[in-house]
């Protein structure tokens, strides 16, 4: 009787472990819509932080554990070759903030619109400016 119980417990653990592993492996990419932002700031402030000191800005903003909410005005929108919706937020500086959505998700924004965008900062590029990923427009 006791042996049987142990066997059942072991079997159950194996099954649970398998199910957990399966879900972890197949977990979908999730955007930043439901994440509480660590920083809320205008697009200009974010870009100027990188222009002033890229290393310091990297250390502060480019982290998996740090989500941002950026206020800005939509300059252009398009879908890139990777099927990612792209929203470029204009700044008064030499480069913009370029926000990328998870492939297949729609941005539902239009040029000239003032929006708040949540996402994660990937770092700074010369032409794209600050690249943001897993973006979601704050409703």
């Amino acid at each position: 009787m006791k042996k049987k119980t142990i066997l059942i417990v072991i079997l159950a653990l194996i099954v649970i472990g398998g199910v957990v592993a399966y879900y972890l492996w197949n977990k979908p990419k999730t955007n930043a819509a439901d994440v509480k932002p660590n920083y809320v700031l205008p697009a200009d402030s974010l870009v100027s932080a990188f222009l002033n000191n890229e290393e310091a800005a990297n250390a502060k903003y480019v982290k998996d554990s740090v989500a941002l909410e950026i206020e800005g005005i939509v300059d252009t929108t398009y879908i890139n070759e990777g099927n990612e919706a792209v929203v470029v937020l204009k700044t008064a500086l030499e480069s913009p903030v370029t926000c990328y959505f998870i492939a297949g998700e729609a941005s539902n924004t239009k040029k000239g619109e003032k929006i708040h965008m949540k996402g994660y900062c990937n770092g700074y590029m010369m032409l794209d400016g600050v690249q943001m990923s897993k973006c979601a427009v704050v409703k």
Binding site: P28, V62, Y100, N122
Partner: peptide, 11 residues
């Protein structure tokens, strides 16, 4: 940018 590489699986 390294974080701009997209994989099929989130994990």
């Amino acid at each position: 940018l390294i974080k701009s590489f997209e994989f099929e699986k989130a994990l």
